[in-house]
């Protein structure tokens, strides 16, 4: 007689179960958004949030996984935007070449990626604080250069009427298509960053961040990993920059002015620079503040122009008390809750 002991098969959790419920809820909410949100909310608030979030995400990738705080990301985005305006169509027909969309978009991203890689190759020669200074200096050099160069970048005015191509008979500047366009790009770049951070390259990059000397001794090329990280993040920033130019339908030196360059850093830091979702949270907070703080200030009897003060003070408070941004505050709160409910650590059960 043989007994067959039937054990319960160890069940692999499905993809559906592995992802926490709240993520599914957020995804569903975002997909269903056009059903109830107004065009202004779709185009101006969420479109802008996703775009700024993508550019800040590229900074988060460099800073969080590579340990390099680069202020060049907005400039790389603006470079891609300029290339779209120069290679594609714009309101300045004397400069724009009028290439078809399937040619100018990849070429624009490629040129921006090369630009970002070159800057990265220069910036990785330095460490820590120097990286910030050098990228800031290059970003402002780009700003002043585009402002003075009329042959290629059309100087102070830049390019207007830069609009997305009409694909599949859809006008992509309408609120709902643009919302889905930015949502798709943002989601793709988010998952790309998550994927790369767990790939061998991403793991090696995090090793380089933590201990470059040891990684070098193990045979990894520290410089090559860092420069490649710049290339990858430049691609994301370039896509974000193109979308930004399409949203505003214009690109000018002010697109990557020094305040805008700093804003990207503010967004990434306020959201939290340790995790890829942080930049999007930061971007949402920033956009809400930018759009609504003039109204709130007016309601309190202050001039609406002081919104920068509000943003600056908020940034200061968050950086002062929580270097990891809003996500860091949330984690602190969760940790305290856990400590309070844990009987082993003196909390009530």
């Amino acid at each position: 007689m043989t007994y067959v002991v039937r054990r319960a098969e160890p069940t692999q959790p499905t993809l559906f179960e592995k992802v926490p419920a709240i993520w599914w809820a957020v995804a569903l909410l975002l997909i269903a958004m056009p059903l109830f949100a107004s065009n202004f909310v779709l185009f101006q608030i969420f479109g802008w949030t996703f775009i700024l979030g993508m550019i800040a995400l590229s900074l988060m990738f460099l800073a969080g996984y590579g340990g390099m705080v680069s202020l060049i990301q907005m400039t790389v985005g603006a470079m891609a935007g300029y290339m779209v305006a120069i290679l594609g169509t714009s309101g300045v027909p004397t400069i724009s070449l009028g290439w078809p969309w399937w040619l100018y978009i990849p070429v624009a991203i490629l040129i921006a990626a090369i630009f970002g890689t070159l800057v990265g190759a220069l910036a990785v020669r330095t460490e820590g604080i120097y990286t910030i200074m050098i990228t800031l200096a290059i970003a402002s050099a780009f700003f002043y250069f585009t402002r003075q160069n009329y042959g290629l970048f059309n100087g102070y005015t830049g390019f207007n009427r830069v609009i997305p191509p009409e694909l599949f008979g859809i006008d992509w500047r309408q609120a709902t298509p643009f919302y889905y366009l930015t949502l798709t790009c943002a989601a793709l770049s988010y998952f790309a960053v998550v994927y790369v951070s767990r790939s061998p390259f991403g793991l090696a990059l995090q090793g380089v961040r933590d201990n470059p000397r040891r990684m070098g001794a193990l045979g990894f090329s520290v410089t090559a990993h860092r420069i490649l990280a710049y290339t990858f993040s430049s691609v994301i920033a370039a896509v974000g920059g193109i979308l930004l130019v399409w949203q505003n339908s214009q690109v000018s030196p002010g697109t990557a002015g020094i305040p805008q360059v700093i804003d990207i850093l503010v967004i990434a830091v306020v959201g939290g620079i340790k995790r890829p979702i942080g930049p999007f949270i930061g971007a949402l907070i920033y956009v809400l503040l930018r759009v609504y703080s003039p109204d709130v200030l007016l309601a309190f009897g202050l001039s609406g122009e002081r919104f920068k003060l509000v943003i600056g003070l908020g940034f200061l408070v968050i950086v002062f008390f929580s270097p990891d941004g809003v996500l860091g505050l949330w984690e602190k709160y969760k940790a305290r809750r856990a400590a309070q409910t844990d009987p082993l650590r003196g909390g009530r059960s």
Binding site: I132, L265, L309, G312, L313, F315, L316, V319, P323
Partner: peptide, 14 residues
């Protein structure tokens, strides 16, 4: 260093 940089950026904006 990074935190100092960020804080001084915030101070300069304000």
């Amino acid at each position: 260093e990074l935190r100092q940089t960020l804080v001084t950026i915030g101070i300069s904006v304000v």
